[in-house]
Design a protein around this nucleic acid. Structure first.
Lengths: 349, 349
DNA sequence: TTGTAAGCGTTATCAT
DNA sequence: ATGATAACGCTTACAA
């Protein structure tokens, strides 16, 4: 723990008995250097354990080799997966990732703004969690690229890496309908969110495709959190067996898990009494009982591709971003079964 | 997306008709400035949308207001929670967090080393996942503080924020023994890991406390991953009902989940046939069936406190770090029950 | 092929 | 109370 002063290029130059610029030439492989002197420099670097001061470099180069990653929370595995993808892609390019997790409680919007503005970041990968664009991000987008992941924000034409949510949702709903379900309810996401809209649209397409009227599909609006899944499942499944839905389309896994929880509490069997599907394919979904039928989103890939797109934008500011619509895949698991036969009607008379 | 040149202090100074130093005085609140001119400066800042170039600041101040966070993976919710805590604490101090997720596949050890060395980081929060200290981190610790979270690395006296793993493990094991279990097996973590050692020690203490011989406690060594839990549970539970363990102490939740999976596969009921406990209290553990009995670790707090400790170290390099042993808490849930009575012996004769 | 020197945008010392 | 000015450590013309 003995704190040492870090050597500078000047130290290296002196040790190697060359000029500072020669050192720079060697380190950046710019400009010709005699092999013998190059070795002297490399030696000095090793001996002194020199490594360049990146602050000085950034200052000179006007680029920080750093990108920002803004995610609403890390404990949501979907975001964690995206974050890993981002970090991998960045690391492959020798770029640092600064992690920002905006906190509703403190004055972090202000802080975040300052941080993003301070030109320590060449660009930002942004996941809102809310569907809206804070002023700070908008401002930033005037100075450098901002790439969205798995969302699109109405009114702002920002580059985005998304996946085929709609198609995935349609296939998932089709699967449910194919099993014979007809009384189906949706537990949707916040209507401001692009993903929520896409998934709902997909469900409705499947309905229409099965010759049903999409407008008869009841939709309860949740907030993508587990608790709202529990609450809305309770609401949706309140009626008697012959009337209540036999299948619940939940717009994400977290809400589906909440719905599962409700069913467990009130003694409804899944999938015998009611089928439940999610969306996201969080790692946990395969561990539950029953295992959740869901749609896998290429979260890691989306993160990775977002970084690719960001650098495309950075490198040639005119070029259009790389293709950015990734495939989803249906994960058929045991939370779906054919609907139970309706119980014989009980005459109240 | 119109790219603008960012204003510098010089621009602000000109706009406000003051000198550059006056601007600096105002912005940093260092040195006296006449109220009227101060306003002019603040105005100019607003009009020009000026924000300081942090690279220049870092260069001058010799500190980057940035810390590094090294975690083995983000999809493990324990690490994700720590990361959130770190980010919160850093944000409260206006410090950036650079995320590093070392990747075994590429030459990332080298990259990571370079990155950490480049004095863009004032210090590092390090979670190894392996129990060992890579050369790059060790080197870094000679230039700036490195704080460990939930581990300690033999041979290196690095500051660490840990929790009472041992106590938690003891209480958990005691609970199992209190239920009447006597044939118990441990599915432990990698023996190089401090946490694995602590937890094992805790189990053994509970054994001794119950008047049993700790040396008779069978220990299978896993790697903290789910698959090893499955594999080792299969191994541990191979014998006939009267001989096999009635309880499995798994050194983390992931392995416990794996064990649960094995039981489901072979038709062993939990907890009727075998009780299973974990360690960590991952969010998912409460969702499983049965809900996993486990020990909660204050992951978020550990992350937060690690940052506190880091800055204590940074601010007065002589002072000892802040207290750093956090409490754990037992989470009693339904994966534990009294052991089944032994079946009557079947005579082979 | 090598070195000199002028910045990059700040901060902080020192005159004024 | 204010303003020149010299660093901070690096890159990069330009000169030699």
């Amino acid at each position: 723990m003995t704190q040492r002063r870090r050597p500078t290029m000047k130290d290296v130059a002196e040790h190697a008995r060359v000029s500072i610029s020669t050192v720079s030439y060697v380190l950046n492989d710019t400009g010709p250097v005699a092999p013998e002197r190059r070795d002297r420099v490399l030696d000095a670097v090793r001996v002194l354990e020199y490594s360049p001061n990146e602050s000085a470099r950034s200052l000179k180069r006007r680029s920080a080799s750093t990108i920002g990653l803004v995610v609403p929370e890390l404990t949501n595995q979907f975001f964690a997966m995206v974050a890993e993808g981002v970090q991998k892609a960045a690391s492959a390019r020798d770029v640092l990732v600064v992690l920002v997790v905006p906190d509703a409680t403190d004055q972090s919007e202000e802080k975040q703004a300052k941080l993003l503005r301070s030109q320590r970041l060449d660009g930002v990968i942004y996941l809102s969690g809310t569907g809206s664009l804070p002023a700070s991000i908008l401002e930033l987008s005037r100075f450098g690229p901002v790439v969205l992941v798995d969302e699109q924000i109405p009114g702002f034409d920002l580059p985005a890496v998304v996946c085929e949510s709609r198609r995935g949702a349609r296939e998932l709903a089709k699967h449910v309908l194919d099993q014979g379900h007809r009384r189906v309810a949706v537990i949707g996401g916040p209507s401001a969110l692009w993903t929520a809209q896409q998934r709902l649209a997909g469900y409705r397409e499947a309905f229409a495709g099965a010759g049903l009227d999409p407008d008869e599909l009841p939709v309860l609006v949740g907030d993508y959190r587990q608790a709202s899944g529990t609450r809305l499942a309770a609401q949706a499944l309140a009626g008697p067996a012959g009337e209540r839905p036999t299948a619940l389309l939940c717009a994400n896994d977290l809400m589906a898990i909440g719905a599962l929880e409700h069913c467990k509490t009130v003694g409804l069997r899944v999938p015998e009494d009611v089928s439940i599907v999610g969306f996201d394919d969080l790692p946990v979904s395969a561990l539950l009982t029953p295992r959740l039928t869901t749609v896998r989103q290429p979260a890691h890939d989306m993160g990775y591709r977002a970084v690719t797109a960001l650098f495309d934008l950075l490198e040639d500011a005119q070029e259009s971003p790389s293709p950015a619509r990734l495939a989803t895949s249906l994960q058929l698991r045991d939370s779906v079964a054919p609907p139970p036969p309706d119980p014989p009607p009980v005459d109240a008379a």
